[in-house]
Write a protein that binds this DNA or RNA. Structure first.
Lengths: 227, 227
DNA sequence: GATTCTTTGACAGTTCTTTGACATCCGCAC
DNA sequence: GTGCGGATGTCAAAGAACTGTCAAAGAATC
């Protein structure tokens, strides 16, 4: 069973979160101020931390920062109120893995918790490399070659390809792509995905007009099929 | 027989619900204010609770919250009026499993009640794979083959087949198909289902004219029978 | 400020879904 | 058994929805 630490000072929200997570069979521990949260993050060995941004004593950013400085790599999900959004970037920089804006739907939050825990546990991690046909992609170096000659790929293209590569053969829904590559809040228009897929095909497929690797599943999403 | 607790202060609505549920062979108990509702939820051992959000004495959220705090995992179906979806409510549903917005159609509500009770009892989950005869269907990859050669199937076809596969041998009513595949809101005409079943038979049956796998149960629905 | 990357909107082309007409089948009453 | 009404099978066509592509606007980066 996964242990989740919630650090939140609003008792209503804390209770709601705790109840919902406990119902989903998580082992839940809680703290209602920053210092206690930080202590529990160290001593409680949580598999995931839900962290409010605004907290008494020590705010979420600080906790985040200190944990990362301590070398902890536990997934952190930051709660921010609308208006604190400017801190989002900061939060992500300081080591949060994801953030949710209040008011949030519990369903969405649970989905994210699940996603984080799964990817942390089942080694469903993003691959560092991808090879097929004459293509080699190095996701860490952001380098790609085809027949040995370099391919110019953008950050987004790497990100999309990486997610598809993480689930080779399975269909990745457009929604999953949006969530993983773009984040939960900024949903660009649907056209954006197609466009990027288009670029990728132009670079990776031997015949972009009839793709063999980046397959469209009408109404669902895309999948990467490699021999 | 399943027991359903209804907590609702509007006598008109309460009566409508009670009559309809009782007619469907549920054992119905009712309360018209929050405190009584909470008591009955504890003492009455309901299999499902229909809970109005706005109630005298103790509102639906509180009841929900307290029940979850008590460790109860009974399915809760919350009734909300349009406009009551304040941020807090929307943001933190404190443990309800489903929501219905007033005004609702009794048919939709009954469908949801049935769905909840069924999934609570049988815990049925959708399969990722289906095999019979020379057919193999992979619901994650959205791939299907017959004798090893690919079958072109659409999203809807996969969805219908998956629901049938989740209850192999059992008859799945047209209503259940509509609810699961199409959702509670948009009901297409009755012809639509037949048509899709027709496509499926054409692809999966060795002799589509006299189906052996996708069986019609006249007046009820369809079932998938595999050897 | 120039360059590169990303997003958007229009458009065409394609695929999927729904519908209606009609034939057929089934269960039921006579 | 026969006839009736409702339910289902089938098909083609209309209607929606989705995707590929492109150019241009908008952001981000350096």
């Amino acid at each position: 069973m996964s242990r989740v630490l919630i650090v939140e000072d609003d008792p209503m929200i804390l209770r709601g979160l705790r109840d919902n997570l406990a119902k989903k069979e998580y082992d839940v521990i809680t703290a209602s101020d920053g210092e206690e949260g930080y202590r529990l993050a160290l001593s409680g060995k949580p598999d995931l931390i839900i962290l409010d941004l605004m907290l008494p004593n020590m705010n979420g950013l600080e906790i985040c920062q200190k944990l990362r400085a301590d070398g902890s790599s536990v997934p952190i999900l930051m709660l921010t109120a609308r208006g604190e959004e400017s801190d989002r970037v900061l939060g992500l920089d300081l080591g949060a893995d994801d953030y949710v804006t209040k008011p949030f739907s519990i369903r969405e939050l649970l989905a994210r918790v699940r996603a984080r825990l799964r990817s942390a546990q089942t080694g469903d991690t993003l691959p560092d490399e991808l090879r097929f046909d004459d293509v080699v992609v190095d996701f860490k170096r952001f380098e790609a070659t085809r027949c040995g000659s370099p391919l110019e790929m953008t950050k987004k293209e790497f990100a999309i390809l990486r997610l598809l590569a993480a689930r080779v053969g399975e269909v990745v829904s457009r929604e999953d792509l949006l969530n993983d590559v773009w984040g939960y809040e900024n949903y660009p228009s649907t056209r954006t995905i197609d466009t990027h897929i288009g670029w990728l095909r132009a670079k990776l497929e031997s015949n972009p007009a009839s793709p063999k690797r980046l397959i469209t599943v009408h109404g669902v999403g895309y999948k990467l099929t490699i021999p």
